[in-house]
């Protein structure tokens, strides 16, 4: 009944939900960075799952996922670089401390 594709789709939607929850609730910047990484993986997994829906495996999805992993790496680099500067200015990695800008 359940094929591999369906299992992967369920897994990817769980990953998506987990990462959005983590983005909202987690307070450490490193945890936020990991949540973003999980979000990228959820989308990538969806592409892979959809790529073998037909008779043949679609190579386009694989090419896309490889590019998407690289982009994910760039986003991670950006957030980690900012984490260093956040630590320099605030002496903490707690995102709750980043509330000096209001309205």
């Amino acid at each position: 009944m359940f094929e591999a594709t369906h299992l992967m789709l369920i897994a990817s939607s769980i990953l998506y939900a987990v990462s959005i929850c983590a983005l909202i609730t987690r307070r450490n910047i490193i945890q936020v960075a990991i949540a973003l990484e999980i979000l990228i993986d959820a989308a990538n997994m969806n592409f892979i799952a959809f790529s073998n829906m037909g008779l043949l495996i679609d190579p386009v999805a694989h090419a896309i996922v490889i590019t998407s992993i690289v982009i994910g790496g760039c986003v991670e680099t950006a957030i980690l670089a900012l984490a260093v500067y956040v630590y320099k200015h605030y002496r903490t990695l707690d995102v709750r401390e980043l509330h000096r800008l209001r309205w």
């Binding site: 973003l36 959820a42 989308a43 969806n46 799952a49 998407s68 900012l82 956040v86």
Partner: peptide, 28 residues
């Protein structure tokens, strides 16, 4: 600048990846 950029990054990166998830559904 660091605080603003951090907010911008987290919100927009999450938004962009949500869009990518939507695109993957369209692809499916």
């Amino acid at each position: 600048a660091i605080e603003a950029s951090f907010k911008y990054l987290v919100m927009c990166a999450a938004g962009n990846l949500t869009a990518l998830y939507g695109i993957s559904l369209l692809y499916g």
